[in-house]
């Protein structure tokens, strides 16, 4: 069953007198429980695609359907509410609120939805345990390491039981050890929470954790690779990337 569908999606930007095509007739289908990575060289349109999939931006043409709902038919407010309730976001730079504790940052989407955190204590507990930060619940972001902050961000992404989680270079700001731990965690959520994850990355190692890798070049999908072997086989991914960058 598909959770997210992009049908003939185009995105163009006007840069002065020049029209730049960031995406050109892209079709993507993500099924429930899948972990999909989107890769491509710089300027290939991967972040643009992620933003469109999350309703953060509007396509110039084509349709994005999220949990059965075509986004083009919704107002800005309605898209925002869909984002709030059905999508989880993980950013490269974490984007935690410095004035809130780890626990409060995790519950932030609930607060935005007008709910009291007290009512969701058990869920937040579970997520803290999942990301291994139960003993850091009262710490503020400036009291946590980069890896710990990203784990808080991951827990936050799942607090509203989203249909899909979109991750934009989640390991881009971490050292390799922390990054691996994050990727392990993402993989774990896929299994334990039956989450559906779409991750943009330029790192073949990160992409190797995904079930499927979509390759973009110059705004078009040029290749898809299924990771059927266990053990994170990076080589095939690197080969494709090398070919794209030539």
């Amino acid at each position: 069953m598909s959770v997210l569908k992009a049908n003939q999606v185009k995105k163009q930007y006007q840069m002065g007198e020049v029209t730049v095509s960031a995406l050109d007739s892209v079709n993507v289908l993500v099924n429930k429980g899948e972990f999909v990575a989107i890769m491509g060289p710089s300027g290939s349109g991967k972040s643009t695609l992620l933003h469109l999939l999350g309703g953060l931006d509007n396509p110039s043409d084509g349709e994005i359907t999220l949990a059965g709902q075509p986004l083009s038919k919704l107002s800005d407010n309605a898209i925002t509410v869909v984002r709030r309730r059905k999508v989880g976001f993980i950013f490269q730079f974490y984007n935690l609120l410095p004035t809130l504790t780890a626990e409060e940052n995790i519950g932030l989407p609930l607060l935005i939805d007008g709910q009291s955190l007290d009512k969701h204590k058990a869920k937040i507990e579970k997520l803290l345990a999942l990301v291994g930060l139960a003993d850091r619940r009262h710490h503020k972001p400036d009291q946590l390491s980069g890896g710990q902050q990203q784990r808080v961000a991951i827990a936050r992404a799942f607090v509203n039981d989203p249909e899909i989680v979109l991750a934009d270079e989640p390991t881009g700001n971490l050292d390799s050890k922390s990054g691996t731990a994050i990727l392990e965690l993402l993989r774990k959520t896929c299994v334990d929470l039956k989450a559906t994850i779409v991750m943009v990355t330029h790192d073949p190692h990160a992409a190797s954790y995904a079930d499927r890798v979509i390759f973009l070049k110059d705004g078009q999908i040029v290749r898809e690779l299924k990771n059927e072997t266990a053990g994170h086989n990076v080589q095939p991914i690197m080969d494709v990337m090398a070919g794209l960058e030539l």
């Binding site: 984007n95 609120l97 935005i112 939805d113």
Partner: peptide, 16 residues
């Protein structure tokens, strides 16, 4: 800016 963008991504409406 980035924080506000993040909050909007998380579902904070313009009015909120």
């Amino acid at each position: 800016q980035r924080e506000i963008g993040g909050l909007r991504s998380l579902g904070l409406t313009r009015w909120q």
